[in-house]
Simulated assay, not measured.
Amino acid sequence: MSQSINELSEWLESHKGETLLIKKGELATGLQQVFDIDEVTLQLEHITVVSNEKSIDDYMPSQELVLHGNGSIQSPEGEKPLPQNAYEIPLYGEVNTTNEKDCLKVETEKAVYDIHLH
């Protein structure tokens, strides 16, 4: 696991039992412009790291973090329950993290995540 993924895992582990607000912005292919922003609230119970060692294309990340807990996602129709009480963060390509006071910013090749204590 890379240093950034370790930092992300450790930060999340240190906030088990707390409520997180996760804002995810998809990155336009080949551009650094954010579109399609999702907002999730999650009571973090635990995390798992899933390795997809047999990933041979860009459709499956080599690793992903799965955040387990009760939560909801904001949609145009209003607030909806989080499917299967889990939120996945696919770790495509190089992963960079920036740790701020009560927030961790995570950047992958395909998305930007701002994870705040709520």
Results as ranks from 00 to 15, higher is better:
L82P: 12
Q63I: 01
D57H: 01
Y59E: 05
E77R: 08
I47D: 04
E64Q: 11
S62L: 09
V34P: 09
Q33I: 11
P81K: 05
T48R: 05
Q33Y: 09
L31M: 15
S75T: 15
E39R: 07
L82V: 04
L31S: 13
T29E: 07
V34G: 05
P76T: 07
S75K: 15
S51F: 00
Q63W: 05
T48L: 00
I37E: 14
D58F: 01
D57W: 00
Q63E: 11
N70S: 15
N52V: 00
G78Q: 07
F35P: 05
S62C: 06
G78A: 08
S55F: 00
V66T: 13
L67R: 09
L44C: 06
G30Q: 10
S55A: 07
P83I: 08
V49G: 00
G69M: 13
D58H: 04
L67S: 09
V34A: 07
A28G: 06
V49I: 07
D58R: 01
P83T: 14
E77A: 08
D36K: 05
Q32P: 06
I73G: 14
I37Q: 12
K54L: 00
E77K: 11
L31A: 10
G30L: 04
Q84G: 09
Q74Y: 13
G78E: 09
Q74C: 06
S75M: 12
Q84C: 06
G71K: 06
Q63C: 01
Q43I: 04
G69Y: 15
N52A: 00
V49C: 01
I37W: 11
E53Q: 03
V40M: 02
G71I: 15
Q74W: 13
E45C: 02
Q32V: 03
V49L: 05
P76C: 03
H68I: 09
Q63F: 05
S62A: 08
L31H: 12
T41H: 04
N52R: 02
V40I: 14
N52E: 02
S62W: 13
K54P: 01
V40N: 04
V66R: 11
S75W: 09
P81A: 05
I47F: 04
A28T: 12
L65P: 11
G71V: 15
I56F: 01
S72M: 13
L42H: 02
V49Q: 02
A28V: 14
S62M: 06
E79V: 12
L44M: 06
Q84H: 11
G69V: 13
Y59H: 07
H46K: 08
L65Q: 15
G78R: 12
Q74T: 13
I56K: 01
V40G: 02
A28D: 13
L67N: 09
P81N: 06
M60E: 08
L82I: 04
L42Q: 02
L42N: 01
I73W: 07
D58P: 01
D58A: 01
L44I: 04
D36H: 06
K80L: 10
T48W: 03
Q32W: 03
Q33D: 15
L31Q: 15
